[in-house]
Each structure stands twice: as structure tokens, then as C-alpha cells.
């Protein structure tokens, strides 16, 4: 019989690994929209961590900021500038057209 504590620690380890991978990919990614999506995955993983560490007040503030407002601001910014992070003066990426 597996206890609830063991499962909680397992879930925390799983979300930590997911957030680490998502952060690494978000830092390395050249396509800024994909970077925003990876960042949203990392935010979701951190929400689970705050939840499992019994900090629902922190999670209640973290979710609107990191899942809601931050991707909105970054997407607005990317829409005004260039999508592909690269050398200066490059045209907007074809984006799978």
C-alpha cells in the first residue's frame, strides 16, 4: 500500500523535472511564441508545487500573474516586434506558411 505522502513527494519530483525541462527549452528557444508556451508550462508546474507545499495564497496570486498576465504582455510585445529571435534586420519568420 502506497501512502499519500509518498505519492505527494513523487508528484513534486515529477513537476520539478517538468518545470526544469520547460525552463531550459524556454531559454534556448529561438521562436518567441514557443518560448511563451514553454514558460506557461513552467508556470503550471510551479502552481502545482505551491499547491503541494500548502501555500494556496501564493498559488492564488501566482496563477493570474504567471499564467494569465505575463503571456498576454509578452504576446502583445512579440506582435509589435519580431517573432524569431535572431540577427538584426531579419524579416519576420515564415511561421509554417
Amino acid at each position: 500500500m502506497i501512502g499519500l505522502n509518498t505519492l505527494t513527494y513523487l508528484f513534486m519530483a515529477l513537476t520539478s523535472v517538468i518545470s526544469l525541462i520547460a525552463t531550459y527549452l524556454a531559454v534556448l528557444e529561438k521562436d518567441l511564441i514557443r518560448a511563451v508556451v514553454y514558460s506557461a508550462l513552467q508556470s503550471t508546474a510551479y502552481t502545482i508545487l505551491f499547491y503541494l507545499l500548502m501555500a494556496p495564497d501564493i498559488a492564488l496570486v501566482y496563477v493570474p500573474v504567471a499564467v494569465g498576465l505575463y503571456p498576454a504582455v509578452i504576446l502583445f510585445l512579440v506582435k509589435k516586434t519580431e517573432r524569431i529571435d535572431g540577427e538584426l534586420g531579419s524579416v519576420e519568420g515564415d511561421g509554417g506558411k
Binding site: T44, T47, M54, P56, L60, P64, V67, G68, L75
Partner: peptide, 29 residues
């Protein structure tokens, strides 16, 4: 329910609402 701490349910409502916002942002972009 399993942790027996009812205040944790509030996080679920907030998460379900804001993930929908992420969906709409990307679709709009």
C-alpha cells in the same frame, strides 16, 4: 479532499479560469 484542507479548492477554480485566457491569447495572436 485527501489532504483534509478545504481551502485548497480555490486554486482549482482560478487555474481553470486563467488557462482559458492563455488559450484565447494564443488563438488571437
Amino acid at each position: 479532499i485527501l489532504f483534509k484542507s478545504p481551502i485548497l479548492i480555490a486554486v482549482a477554480i482560478v487555474l481553470a479560469l486563467w488557462i482559458f485566457a492563455l488559450d484565447i491569447y494564443v488563438a488571437k495572436y
